[in-house]
Computed example of a mutant assay.
Amino acid sequence: MNPARFAPILFGFLVSGLMSCLVSLVATLRTSGLTAETSTKWMEAWTTSWPVAFAAILVVAPAVRRLVARLVRSEA
C-alpha cells in the first residue's frame, strides 16, 4: 500500500474542512450576528456542512483538475 495515493483524499478533507469552517462562520454571523449563541450555531452549521463539502470536493475535484489543465498551457 502506498500512502501517497491517499494525498488527494487528505487534501480534499483538509480543504473542505477549512473552507466549510470559514463559510459557515460568515453565514452564521450574517444570519445571527455576534451573540452569546454564535459559537454554538457556528459549530452546528460547520458539522453539518463539512461532510457535504468533503463529498462535493471529492466528486468535483477531478473535473476541475481537467478544466484547469485545459485552460493553462504547460511550460515546454
Rank of each mutant, 00 (worst) to 15 (best):
A4M: 07
R5P: 01
F6Y: 14
F6V: 14
F6W: 14
A7H: 02
A7I: 07
A7K: 07
A7T: 09
P8Y: 03
P8N: 02
L10E: 00
L10F: 09
F11D: 03
F11A: 01
F11K: 03
G12E: 01
F13G: 05
F13L: 10
L14M: 13
V15H: 04
S16I: 04
G17D: 03
M19R: 03
M19A: 10
S20W: 08
C21E: 11
L22K: 07
L22E: 05
L22Q: 06
V23Q: 04
V23L: 11
V23C: 07
L25Q: 09
V26Q: 05
A27V: 14
A27I: 10
T28P: 05
T28K: 05
L29M: 13
L29P: 00
L29T: 08
R30L: 13
R30W: 15
T31R: 12
T31I: 13
G33T: 04
G33L: 04
G33E: 08
T35Y: 05
T35L: 08
T35K: 10
A36N: 04
A36R: 11
A36T: 05
E37G: 12
E37K: 10
T38S: 15
T38Y: 10
T40D: 15
K41G: 12
K41Q: 12
W42S: 06
W42I: 03
E44P: 01
E44K: 14
A45K: 05
W46R: 02
T47H: 10
T47L: 13
T48H: 12
T48Q: 13
T48V: 13
T48K: 13
T48I: 14
W50Y: 10
A53Y: 05
A55G: 14
A55V: 09
A56F: 11
I57P: 01
L58I: 08
V60C: 05
P62N: 00
A63I: 06
V64E: 00
R65I: 02
R66N: 06
L67H: 06
L67A: 08
V68R: 03
A69S: 14
R73G: 08
R73F: 10
S74N: 09
E75N: 06
A76S: 12
